[in-house]
Write a protein that binds this DNA or RNA. Structure first.
Length: 483
RNA sequence: GGCCCCAUCGUCUAGAGGCCAAGGACACCACCCUCUCAAGGUGGAGGCACGGGUUCGAAUCCCGUUGGGGCUGCCA
């Protein structure tokens, strides 16, 4: 991908759509980046074009291959697959050097030896912010130790035709002579982006709104370098914001895609939720398959205002997708969470068959896959310890609890351990105690399952088995204060 | 400060001049279902930031104000 496409001989011939996602590997990959990537991907699929992944690692100080790995694995997890790349700007340096040399040779750019400090000192005294053009007329040779700045026209207007925002006008007078190449020789992203978009024959630049202010610079550079190749279409999608309505930040906000994966969110739920942030299909449906998104996605329908990344809504979608899984799929996808080293039981105590038997009941209750172990912990964790708060509330402070546990022990010694028979047995206990079934089972539930809420009791006792059930009921009985 | 963007329930949104006494979803509240918890069902509360225009008619168009955000780096 280092050559320009052959000029179109027939200007009416359709140009193959090529979109790109160009993250910089300077921090963990957050959901805002994922949403931008998704929109790019959706458009590429929708138009039957190519999705190019380009890693913008021109800043050697801040870039780290580990972050690149994170981006690639997150995109893979989400199923946002790239058709070409990943390309690394750090490997394409010669292209930027050549472009810089050309701009300098043609007088479109000039060398500057002002230090950032002196520039700042001067601009602080001026009404107009930005570089003051001090080196414009000095005709300094372009060499190591000097930055290269673009000579922005003093007059005129640069218009960005934006697919989601319409035409946005910038007075050239408000654009400073921006730096293209650092004094250490490294190119800056404005230059690299334009060179690459041109070289890679990109037709659509879809990126976050924060890039809108730099777009007129890209347009100026494109005009200087593209030799007439048409400018790509631009689309600046709204940023994702936190609860304080600020742009999601890698530093400030804990919203790494990787974190959601670790918590047990399904990628299809994440994708569905992300797609609906700033976009919605014409008929208002919310649960959409990938194909439906592809078929219906249009940049023209993307909103212009920022959207808040609402985890509660994400959780809702996750539950929807989780429950829509077949039981077998659910078991399969829960497996990594049941076999992780974070699990609250010793691996050898886990029993797949026991889990599988209860899986449908677990599936109905888990909001994320990460919640699965907690729901079945009582089956596998040894030694068994009821939750202290639950014990205090349902047993220690319930004067009837002792009698109920005793009655339960008596009847469960002989009853068949099937949900139906267990239900009849506990109903009998409830009757003896003069309570409703739900109230009567509370102490039994805490004594055997350790919590006051969770899976249905009878199926759980069946899975636990008679021996352990009786053991736990007796243990609880023995721990009642004053009993 | 300068440049730019944005503005419908708490949140995500539908709405492209009359079909809107503004619809859906999440969250919230109540009830139903129910062995707990979920899930599900029913109902409820809750919004067009403000002010001017344009028009027979404006959430929808224009202007202004206010508010929020982004950029303002030899980061991307």
């Amino acid at each position: 991908m280092a050559t320009l496409p052959a000029p179109m001989s027939d200007s009416s011939a359709p140009i193959s759509p090529r979109v790109r996602f160009a993250p910089s590997p300077t921090g963990y990959f957050h959901v805002g980046g994922a949403r931008t990537a998704l929109f790019n991907w959706l458009l590429a699929r929708r138009l039957g074009g190519r999705f190019v992944l380009r890693i913008e690692d021109t800043d050697r100080e801040r870039s780290d291959p580990a972050w690149t790995e994170g981006i690639l694995s997150a995109l893979t997890w989400l199923g946002v697959a790239w058709d070409e790349g990943p390309f690394f700007q750090s490997e394409r340096r010669h292209l930027y050097d050549a472009a810089a040399a050309r701009l300098f040779a043609e007088g479109r750019a000039y060398a500057c030896d002002c230090s950032p400090e002196t520039v700042k000192a001067r601009t602080d005294q001026r009404a107009v912010p930005g570089y003051d053009g001090f080196c414009r007329g000095r005709a300094l040779p372009f060499e190591r130790g000097r930055a290269l700045r673009y000579r922005v026209p003093d007059e005129g207007t640069t218009v960005v035709h934006d697919l989601v925002r319409g035409d946005v006008e910038f007075q050239n007078a408000t654009i400073e002579d921006f730096v293209l190449v650092k004094s250490n020789g490294d190119p800056l992203f404005v230059l690299a982006v334009v060179v690459d978009d041109l070289d890679m024959a990109i037709t659509h630049v879809i990126r976050a709104e924060e890039h809108l202010p730099t777009t007129p610079k890209a347009v100026l550079l494109w005009d200087a370098l593209a030799d007439g190749h048409p400018l790509p279409a631009f689309a600046h999608v709204p940023v994702l914001v936190n609860e304080r309505r600020q742009k999601l930040s890698k530093r400030r906000d804990r919203v790494a895609v990787e974190d959601y994966r670790a918590l047990g969110y399904l990628p299809e739920a994440m994708v569905n939720y992300l797609a609906l942030l700033g976009w919605s299909p014409a008929d208002g449906r919310e649960v959409l398959s990938r194909q439906e998104m592809i078929d219906e996605f249009r940049l023209e329908d993307v909103l212009r205002s920022p959207a808040f990344f609402d985890e509660r809504r994400l959780l809702h979608f996750n539950g929807l997708y989780l429950r829509a899984l077949s039981v077998d799929e659910f078991i399969e996808r829960a497996r990594p969470f049941l076999e992780s080293d974070q699990v609250p039981w010793r691996p050898e105590h886990f029993d797949t068959a026991v889990f599988s038997a209860l899986a449908p009941l677990v599936q109905e209750r888990a909001g994320t896959l990460g919640e699965v172990p907690g729901l079945v912990e009582f089956l596998f964790a040894e030694p068994f310890e009821p939750d202290p708060d639950a014990f205090a509330k349902a047993i220690a402070s319930d004067p009837e609890a002792g009698r109920i546990l005793e009655a339960a022990i008596a009847i469960l010694e002989s009853v068949e351990f099937s949900p139906a028979a267990l239900r009849r047995a506990i109903e009998e206990v409830a009757e003896q105690a003069g309570r409703k079934l739900g109230k009567a089972q509370a102490p039994i539930r805490v004594a055997t399952m350790g919590r006051s809420t969770g899976l249905p009791l009878f199926e759980s006792l069946e899975a636990l088995g008679r021996e352990r059930t009786l053991e736990r009921l007796n243990a609880a009985l023995g721990r009642i204060p004053g009993a």
